[in-house]
Computed example of a mutant assay.
Amino acid sequence: MIVTRSMTAFARHEEQTELGSLSWEIRSVNHRYLEVSFRLEESFRPFEMAMRKLISDTLSRGKVEVALRYRVPEQAQNALQMNVDLAKTVMENYQQLASFTDNAAPIDILRVMQWPGVIQTESLDQDALQATVLNSLKHALDDLVATREREGAALEQMIIQRCEQINDIAEQTKIRLPDILASHRQKLSDRIAELEVSLEPERLEQEMVLLAQKADVAEEIDRLQNHVNEVKHTLKRNEPIGRRLDFLMQELNREANTLGSKSIDTDTTRYSVDLKVLIEQMREQIQNIE
Results as ranks from 00 to 15, higher is better:
residue 86 L to N: 11
residue 252 L to W: 01
residue 234 T to A: 13
residue 78 N to T: 01
residue 25 E to R: 13
residue 3 V to F: 11
residue 95 Q to G: 03
residue 232 K to L: 15
residue 279 I to F: 02
residue 6 S to R: 04
residue 124 L to W: 01
residue 282 M to K: 06
residue 200 E to P: 10
residue 254 R to Q: 07
residue 192 I to H: 08
residue 32 R to F: 04
residue 126 Q to P: 06
residue 56 S to C: 09
residue 186 Q to P: 01
residue 13 H to N: 14
residue 123 S to N: 01
residue 274 D to V: 07
residue 3 V to K: 15
residue 272 S to A: 14
residue 72 V to K: 13
residue 37 S to C: 00
residue 107 I to V: 15
residue 40 L to Y: 07
residue 180 I to C: 03
residue 28 S to R: 09
residue 121 T to E: 11
residue 89 T to Y: 00
residue 180 I to P: 03
residue 259 L to A: 02
residue 66 V to C: 12
residue 281 Q to N: 05
residue 287 Q to F: 04
residue 284 E to N: 08
residue 228 V to Q: 14
residue 27 R to D: 06
residue 196 E to R: 07
residue 275 L to S: 05
residue 229 N to K: 14
residue 254 R to T: 13
residue 136 S to D: 00
residue 125 D to H: 05
residue 162 R to S: 15
residue 192 I to W: 02
residue 278 L to E: 09
residue 196 E to G: 11
residue 148 R to E: 05
residue 223 R to P: 05
residue 162 R to Q: 15
residue 94 Y to F: 14
residue 58 T to G: 03
residue 56 S to K: 07
residue 66 V to A: 04
residue 24 W to R: 11
residue 91 M to I: 15
residue 255 E to N: 05
residue 184 H to F: 11
residue 94 Y to G: 03
residue 160 I to Q: 08
residue 205 E to H: 10
residue 53 K to L: 14
residue 30 N to L: 11
residue 116 P to I: 11
residue 232 K to Q: 11
residue 255 E to G: 02
residue 165 Q to A: 15
residue 141 L to M: 00
residue 197 V to F: 09
residue 128 A to Q: 07
residue 285 Q to F: 07
residue 160 I to S: 11
residue 64 V to E: 00
residue 66 V to D: 08
residue 111 R to E: 14
residue 82 M to A: 15
residue 27 R to T: 13
residue 256 A to M: 04
residue 237 R to C: 08
residue 287 Q to N: 09
residue 69 R to V: 12
residue 78 N to R: 14
residue 123 S to L: 03
residue 50 A to Y: 03
residue 184 H to L: 10
residue 237 R to W: 12
residue 143 D to P: 00
residue 192 I to D: 04
residue 43 S to E: 12
residue 128 A to C: 02
residue 246 D to G: 11
residue 129 L to C: 06
residue 199 L to A: 10
residue 25 E to C: 10
residue 85 D to H: 11
residue 22 L to A: 12
residue 118 V to G: 07
residue 88 K to G: 09
residue 226 N to R: 07
residue 195 L to I: 10
residue 223 R to S: 13
residue 222 D to C: 10
residue 33 Y to T: 02
residue 231 V to K: 07
residue 31 H to T: 00
residue 117 G to P: 01
residue 272 S to P: 03
residue 131 A to W: 01
residue 131 A to V: 01
residue 119 I to C: 10
residue 66 V to N: 04
residue 141 L to H: 03
residue 244 R to H: 07
residue 136 S to T: 06
residue 232 K to Y: 06
residue 201 P to F: 06
